[in-house]
């Protein structure tokens, strides 16, 4: 039972992380490789505020979300200068800078040692060290995220975002302010990535830079692609499916040293297989060769 609760909490965190990625990547067609970096900023904000300064969750969670959204403005600025593959490299470089700072700013982040002893949230007098209660909290926040993002997906904002992805010039000629639409999409996306990061830090109690590497980004990307970019429920099912998929591996006898790479291999193969089968329709063809 405890194990199922653990899985449900992980699924909840990844639902928030993947669906928020779906806003910029799926709707906006922006190949944003910095999403996990923003998630890391959310996680580190909560970790530092709750250990060093002993702030409660009512302060830590909103602070994580806001700080993440602030960094989104930087990514937005990068996306305005660069398009297509240039933005992919730019966002990758941004996330690499974040990782380098997390590793090297030892006085703040303890570098590769990570931050241990993050306390579970403490409010409304509920004991969140009990995972069932923590799951309840995650569940409520997933519902809130889903309601907000569902409204975003149904709004005219999402149509503007899709329009600038398919044809920026045509969208602009119809009066769509591309700068504003992109910035807003990054803000919304990062707000919830920060929330996911905050919950991750609270749940795992210990974070270090290795949780936020490129392989994590590829995992989030796999969820978005397996679920079909831009599809709200597709990405939802893909998140549940992909988080649970490697779990049976736990029950066969393999050493933990092989388990990590094996999961990585599994996800990369699935990602490649889906792209292979759907290569004609996965992304609208923009490039004229």
């Amino acid at each position: 039972m405890e194990y199922l609760i653990h899985l449900a909490i992980l699924v909840g965190i990844y639902l928030i992380l993947a669906q928020s990625f779906n806003v910029t990547f799926g709707l906006g067609g922006l190949f944003n490789l910095a999403h996990v970096a923003v998630y890391a900023i959310g996680a580190y904000t909560t970790a530092l505020l709750s250990t060093e300064y002993s702030y409660g969750p009512l302060f830590c969670i909103p602070a994580s979300m806001l700080l993440s959204a602030l960094f989104a403005l930087l990514i937005g600025a990068i996306s305005l200068k660069l398009s297509h593959d240039y933005f992919a490299i730019g966002s990758l470089a941004f996330s690499a800078v974040v990782t380098a700072v997390l590793i090297n700013w030892k006085s703040l982040t303890r570098g590769v040692l990570g931050i241990p002893g993050i306390p579970r949230p403490d409010f409304l007098g509920v004991d969140y060290y009990d995972n069932a209660n923590f799951l309840l909290l995650v569940g409520v926040l997933v519902v809130v995220t889903y309601v907000v993002l569902w409204l975003v997906f149904q709004s005219s904002f999402s149509r503007r975002l899709r329009a600038q992805a398919e044809h920026p010039h045509a969208a602009q000629s119809l009066g769509i302010d591309i700068k504003r639409v992109r910035n807003e999409s990054f803000m919304i996306s990062s707000l919830f990535a920060g929330l996911a990061g905050s919950l991750f830090a609270y749940y795992i109690n210990y974070i270090d830079p290795s949780s936020f590497g490129l392989h994590e980004m590829v995992f989030v990307l796999s969820i978005a692609i397996v679920g079909r970019p831009g599809s709200f429920w597709g990405v939802t099912f893909a998140a549940v499916f992909l988080v649970l998929l490697p779990e049976p591996l736990r029950f066969i006898e393999i050493s933990p040293a092989v388990l990590g790479p094996m999961r990585q291999l599994l996800y990369a193969l699935i990602l490649f297989a889906v792209v292979w089968w759907k290569r004609e329709t996965l992304f609208p063809s923009q490039r004229v060769v």
Binding site: F31, V218, L265, F272, E280, P284
Partner: peptide, 20 residues
């Protein structure tokens, strides 16, 4: 096809090689 496809496939390839 779309430029995004090779970004995704080469990322997948990189993870496959690293995992192997």
């Amino acid at each position: 096809l779309s430029f995004m496809l090779t970004l995704v496939t080469t990322l997948a390839l990189s993870n496959i090689l690293e995992a192997l």
